Computed example of a mutant assay.
Amino acid sequence: MPDDTRAQTTAEPLLTRFPPPGGPPAGRVLVLPALGVPARFYGRLAEQLAARGLEVAVLELRGTGESPLTPARHCDFGFRELLDEDIPAALRTLRAARDGLPLWMLGHSLGGHLAVITAGRMPDEIDGLMLVACGSPWRGAYAGATRRRLDAICALIPVCNALLGYYPGHRLGFGGRQPRTIMRDWRALARSNRYAAAGIREDLEAGLARFAGPVLSLRMADDDFAPQAATRAVTAKLPAASLTEAVLDGAALGTAADHFRWARQPDAVVTRIAEWMQKAGAAS
């Protein structure tokens, strides 16, 4: 009898690539999306970064956007598959040219956490991190209505997993439709502020001190899901890194300074990234 579960939870990573229009790249950037956000959402960001002379690739997370996988009781996966399979495969693709160009990771929200963990596991292969609206979901970093909402989500996850076999975030207004193990892993982070993944025995927190590269953390001024306490709960995990922090408000962005709308008008974000890269000597 065929292993239908394995067949429906395995897929080649999907990369959308944006080459620079004016010649060879000055560096490469792998963009990792937020939970439940399709790769196409970052199209404008990728185009503007490419216009700055960078080769950009956006990874489609499993079960999202153009991915052939649909989270269900028979289709389950967690952080492990992203960290052990999809992200390393994407990095190998970008390193295939073997031209020695710097390789950066840009992560939005959950994508930022995945980028941080990967940098801790592969510190010699990642030249720098850009964390955009990336705050820990740890309840201790929040207060008021946002904390109550996070508590409610954490309470719903095991109930939905048991009843449905997946998390119906597309109906609940948070995270999109997700496999149960990803949400178990996310819930564990929200409860402890420690990185772990079902199926990975390695201490993911222990390796973070090995990454000594530059890190840019961009926070949106009115982002309820990534306030200062939450973003610093992430950057504090990288004690050896060279950290630059910046806050962008609505006037700078030209739109609401919340968790998502910056990507629709990414001009200010791209300008900050380009300035930071230039100071770091990574790209002109």
Rank of each mutant, 00 (worst) to 15 (best):
M277H: 03
H108I: 09
A197E: 08
G128A: 12
D258P: 11
T235I: 13
R261Y: 00
R147Q: 10
P24Q: 05
A39F: 04
G53H: 03
G165E: 08
D267L: 10
L49A: 05
L243P: 03
T9Q: 06
A141L: 10
G111N: 11
L15I: 12
S67C: 00
L163C: 08
G173R: 12
A252I: 05
S109T: 01
R6H: 12
P71H: 03
G63S: 06
D249W: 05
R17I: 14
L82A: 14
L32H: 08
L91P: 01
F174Q: 14
A119K: 01
P179H: 01
L59M: 11
N161S: 15
E55V: 01
E81L: 13
T271F: 06
F79A: 13
G120Y: 07
G173L: 10
A133R: 08
A119V: 05
P214H: 06
S192K: 06
G135C: 13
A257W: 10
M220C: 12
H113A: 07
T64F: 03
Y42D: 12
E85N: 15
P38I: 15
D4F: 10
G27F: 08
E66F: 01
L54I: 08
Q8P: 00
A115H: 07
A11D: 11
G213N: 06
A196W: 04
A51D: 15
T118W: 02
G65Y: 07
L35I: 09
G27N: 10
R264C: 02
A143K: 04
D86T: 04
Q278V: 07
L103H: 12
P88G: 15
E85R: 15
L30G: 14
R17K: 11
M130E: 03
M130F: 05
D127V: 01
L35C: 06
V116H: 09
F79T: 06
Q228A: 14
G43Y: 03
R148H: 02
L94V: 04
L131I: 05
G100Q: 13
M183R: 07
G112R: 08
G22T: 14
D4R: 11
L32A: 04
Q278K: 13
A143P: 00
M183S: 10
L114E: 08
I182L: 15
A162V: 03
P158G: 10
F77R: 07
E125T: 10
A143Y: 00
K279S: 08
V31H: 06
A190T: 09
D185F: 04
D258N: 15
P179D: 02
R17Q: 14
V269T: 14
T271D: 15
L35T: 14
R201M: 04
P102D: 12
A233Y: 04
L129M: 03
A162Q: 12
E202K: 02
A133V: 05
P88D: 15
D223L: 07
L54W: 04
L129F: 08
C160E: 13
C160Q: 13
A145Y: 00
L54P: 02
N193C: 05
F260M: 15
E205Q: 13
C75E: 07
R6F: 10
V234S: 01
D203A: 07
R52A: 13
D99S: 14
R92H: 03
A141G: 08
A268M: 09
M277I: 00
E125N: 05
L243H: 04
Q48M: 12
V234H: 00
A221E: 15
A198N: 04
